[in-house]
Every structure is written in C-alpha cells, then in structure tokens.
Design a protein around this nucleic acid. Structure first.
Lengths: 332, 332
DNA sequence: CTGTTAGCGCATTCAG
DNA sequence: CTGAATGCGCTAACAG
C-alpha cells in the first residue's frame, strides 16, 4: 500500500523488527541474510511500497546511474537520432539520461556541461562548434566524458561520423555524373564537421583539376537553404552540395518555386540522411550519418569508462552514400 | 584552481578558518554574515573551485531542481517539439530535465514514470495510449505531475492540444472544397488524441448527411502512410485525412509513385504541422499543433505546482488550420 | 548471520 | 553574527 509519503528504510526496519543494515542487505540482494528473515523483510517492504531513495543512495555510493547529454539543439535531426540511440542504450543498462540543450549558445556550453556533470556520472558532449582549445581545456574536468562528432582527443573516447569521407563520396558522385561546376552551401563556420567537409572538397579539387567549387555561405536549416537560392542561381552551377539535408530541402523547395527542375536542370545533394530526406520531391541524394549507431556507441564508450574498462578509444563511422532522385547527369 | 577531486564545504571551511555553517550561509547568500568574512569565504571558494554538491543539497533540501519527462517515442516530431519547449522553459528557471523514452512500451510507462519520479521533483507525462483507468490510478503517486495531450484530469494539471477542433477544421476544409467521400487513416487505436479526432469526424457526419468517411486502419509513421496507398485507392475517395503528417507524407510519396496527382486527383491532409510539412511536394495542408507552446505551458504548470501555486488547471490549445498545396477542389 | 557506528556533503536548527 | 550539533536516507565497515 504505497502512500504519497514514501516509506524510508528506517520504517521498514522498524515494522519488520530488524536493523537498518538488514533491510539494506535484503534490498541489495546480499545473500548473507537468513532466508526467512529476508522473506519477512521483503514482505514488509512490499507492503509499505518501499524502495530505496535513489538520492540518498547516490550520495553514499558516489554514483547516480545517470549521464548527461549536452547537445546544441534539440531541433536538429542529427542530434535527435544520436540522443535516441543513446537514450535507449543507456536505458537498457539501467541508466537515466539528463538532457542539456545549449540552444546553440556556444559560450555557455562549458558551464552547462560542468553543471550537469555534477549531478551525473558522466557526460556525453556534442559541441560541434566549441573551439578545439576550449574543448581540450574542458574535457579533463568533465571526466568521464565522451565526445561526439569531433576529431579524436587526447585522453577521452570519441564517437564520430567521418564527414570528410561522406563529403568525398558526394563530390565524387556528382563528378561522376559529369558535373564540373558545383556549389557548396557551406553552413555555419567553425564547426568541426564543417572543416571535415571542406577538406574533402579540397582533396577533390586537387584530384580533379577540371572541377570548380563555388562556396556559398549559408546557415544550417531550411530557411538558409531557401535563402541561398538566388546565390545558387547566380553561381551558374549544375550541382549543389548542401551543408546538410535541411539546407538541401530548403533549396529544393526554393528552386522549385523558381521553375528549376531537379535533377534535370540542377542536381542537389544533402548530408545526414534525416528521416525526411527520402520523402522530398525528388527524394534527396545524401550521405547517411548513422545517428542511432553513434548514440549507441557513445553509450558503449561511456559505459566502458564507468566500469573502468578500456579508456580512450575513438570510433569513426563512414557515412554511406545514398543516391536518390535529386541528383542526375549534368544537363547538356 | 579546480582539480579533478571537487572541494567539499569542509575543505573550504577549513582553509578559510571558519565553520561549515558560515560557508553554507555565504554560498546561499544568507546576509547574516559579516561582510569581510563573507568576502574571504568567497575568495577561498573561488580559489578551490568550490560549489555545493547538488546531490547532497538535494538530499537535505528535498528537491532536485530536476523534472522528468516521460515520452513514448523520441522519434516522434510532436513530442520532440514539446520536449524542446519544455526543456528551454525549465532551463530558464534553473531546472534540469531527465528524459525517459518509453519506446512505445505502454506496459512499462507506469514503472518508468514512477522510477524517474523518485529522482526528480515532478514528472511531465506524455502517455497518449495509457488506458484512462491506469492513468487515473497512476497520477496520485506521481504528484506533482502534469499530463500532456490527455483530457482534463481530476486533480492534475493538463496541457493539451484539442485534436477534435483540429480535425473538425480539416474535415470542414475538405468538405468546403467539395469532397464528399473522404478517407480517414485512423492511426493506432487506443490513443486519446485518436478518440478526439474520431469524435470530430462523427460530428461532421452528423452535420453533413451527404458526407461519407471511409476509415482505413494505419499506423502513425511514414511507412504506414505509404502502406495505405492501395487501400486508399481502392476506397475510391477524393480526399484523405491522415492521422498525422508522417502518415500523410508517406501516402503522398506512395500515391505519387502511382501517378496520382495531388491535389488534382486526390487531396491529402496531415495533422501536427511538423517542420517538414511545408517542404513536401506539394506542401502539406495540416492542423498545426503548437508543440513548443505546449511544452512551455507544461513547464509553467509544473512550476506552479512546485511553488505551491494554483493546482489543477487544464489548458487547451486549438490547433490552427494550415492550408497548403496538398488539398484542392474535388475533381469533377 | 545481525546489529551498531560512522559518514556521504550539505542546510539548518540551536546555543552562545 | 558565528560555531557546534542534528539529520536528510542510505551503505559499508566494524563488532558481536
């Protein structure tokens, strides 16, 4: 008969006529308790609806069974899937997840991470735009910590998609389709994955002297993509590589309004393979970032840290090129 | 100079040459401390990088500054926006958010809610499919709790969108466009919002004797929508009201593949107005559920409970009809 | 096998 | 105004 006021271990001990320790032992499955006694305690506990106060437990044990996830934007589909993968995996291991949405406030990421870390056993940090130096300085104080989508770090596990490989596949894809003058919607500056994308572009330019890439500034969302339409048209390209799927979809929509046919007149590719990418018209060619897997692996890494297993591993997954209808041969 | 091992209040007290209580008072802004002394304590605290252990604080104060959000599926865009609105609002008030994704396991919702409740100050419960009786039985033990997207409850605040109103607007919309034989992709059974949608449909049937509604079973996601295409075609209707935007988008995609033109041959409407709804081809007519606002209001309600202000209010928001390109006049 | 003691880190009486 | 106790609820030595 659970009442609103939770029973404490003291009450259980009292009504069962035993000491605190005995109750504690029984509740924690300590086998050094007389079977009959244990049974009686269990009955009383059940009757009173008792279960240990996790807070008190955390304080004495020094662990909370909770990890924090710091993400820049809960609205970003990529982080959503990472969060989901992580949440499920952690939950399967009996861990809870505290979320901290930094609302893109790069300046407050460190503070937030530190604050949430104090009430958890570790933090999974997604901070794509935090300067590398700041990150390196922050990590030690956060330990145990695993970093998502950043280059391998000194002494902290890292889980990341290789945005360079993904972008390389996309450039090669449009190059193979005959495109030679290609626009790149560059997204926001200062992001780690942005740098990786760009390096793939640079390599492509080296590998293919007849390739031209016109870089166009943009944001990271729909509206940015739509807003880039004029610049794209002015650039006189036959293909566009967007920073991500959102940007690509915005552009797709905006050029559609202008009567441009995709992919006949213009090829457009995104990045991420968010769930909606396959439902645009035409469906979006993109590089699939395995968010769910990244989330799971981030948890694996955290779990390993928590259990004192192998320390700083850095796992990298290659995005998979997904060719759909939004890219096609260069118009003749 | 913050080190990995956090300073405790005892250490601060010792190095400042004062008692625990004094440090505690200073850290909590208690003004009954000599200014000079307080300043010295603050300096030492800063030097040692001290700040109170939230766990210990929670244990003694009886509050965690954390609330739990229980949602059925982190992948569901509607809950995503609710979560986001809630998270931002709570964060602004200095509260943390623990997420519990029940992974659509209705049977475990109660357990999970109870478990997370114990380590937080309250829970925001999104459990669209939990039987009303179970819900009513569960709520008292969760208090303080606010319920999202369910009918008003006995003694717990409720924040909800009025799915009946939204659906009523959509039916009326297609009726006004001349459609008389309409399909309804019914989503999953047993959801509270599903019942609300259906009642709107019933009312429409009563109001318009010449209206026919063909109900077709479906799920709640893209694939369900796509999978319903054959059934929709067989139903020989001129308009379809989908359970939500995801279903509508799946259907849109599938009928597109079959050469059906939307809206010339078939009108399709969704529900929710998820961010992607405006970027389908054609853009989706839908009823906009204000997820962000619902999330914020859920937090307001929780905040009120936490501060002992007004108790069981139930706020309801009407979805807004958003007419885009996926619905049009009945084909002649 | 069981009970008594101490203490996790802190806020808060209560004396002085 | 400040310090010395008390206890939040629990687990983990430590005795018996």
């Amino acid at each position: 008969m659970a009442r609103s006021a939770r029973a404490t271990i003291t009450q259980v001990a009292r009504t069962a006529g035993v000491s605190l320790s005995t109750v504690s032992r029984v509740m924690n499955g300590n086998p050094t308790v007389d079977a009959a006694l244990a049974e009686r305690v269990r009955e009383v506990a059940a009757e009173l609806g008792y279960s240990a106060n996790p807070l008190a437990r955390s304080l004495v044990l020094g662990r909370t069974q909770t990890v924090a996830v710091v993400i820049p934007d809960l609205a970003n589909p990529t982080f959503q899937s990472i969060l989901r993968g992580l949440s499920r995996a952690a939950s399967d291991d009996g861990f809870h997840v505290l979320i901290a949405d930094t609302a893109e406030q790069v300046a407050e990421e460190a503070t937030l991470a530190t604050a949430t870390r104090r009430r958890t056993d570790g933090v999974i940090l997604c901070a794509p735009r935090m300067p590398a130096d700041d990150l390196a300085a922050l990590l030690p104080s956060l330990s145990p910590v695993v970093v998502v989508n950043r280059p391998p770090q000194e002494a902290t596990p890292t889980v990341a998609a290789d945005y360079r490989v993904g972008m390389a596949q996309l450039v090669q894809h449009v190059y193979d389709l005959g495109h030679r003058r290609v626009a790149y919607l560059a997204g926001v500056v200062g992001s780690a994955s942005g740098a990786a994308r760009r390096s793939a572009l640079d390599e492509a330019l080296t590998a293919h002297p007849d390739l031209e890439i016109i870089e166009i500034a943009s944001g990271v969302d729909f509206d940015s993509g739509a807003g880039s339409a004029d610049a794209v048209m002015a650039a006189d390209v036959t293909a566009v590589l967007a920073f991500n799927d959102l940007v690509a979809m915005g552009l797709l929509s905006a050029v559609g309004d202008r009567g441009i046919r995709v992919p006949e007149d213009l090829s457009i590719a995104g990045f991420d393979d968010i769930p909606f990418a396959r439902y645009t018209t035409p469906p979006l060619t993109t590089a699939a970032v395995p968010g769910l897997e990244l989330g799971q692996e981030a948890w694996q890494a955290m779990s390993a840290l928590l259990e004192g297993r192998d320390a700083a591993t850095s796992t990298v997954r290659d995005p998979a090129l997904v060719v759909r209808g939004s890219t096609g041969p260069r118009p003749s």
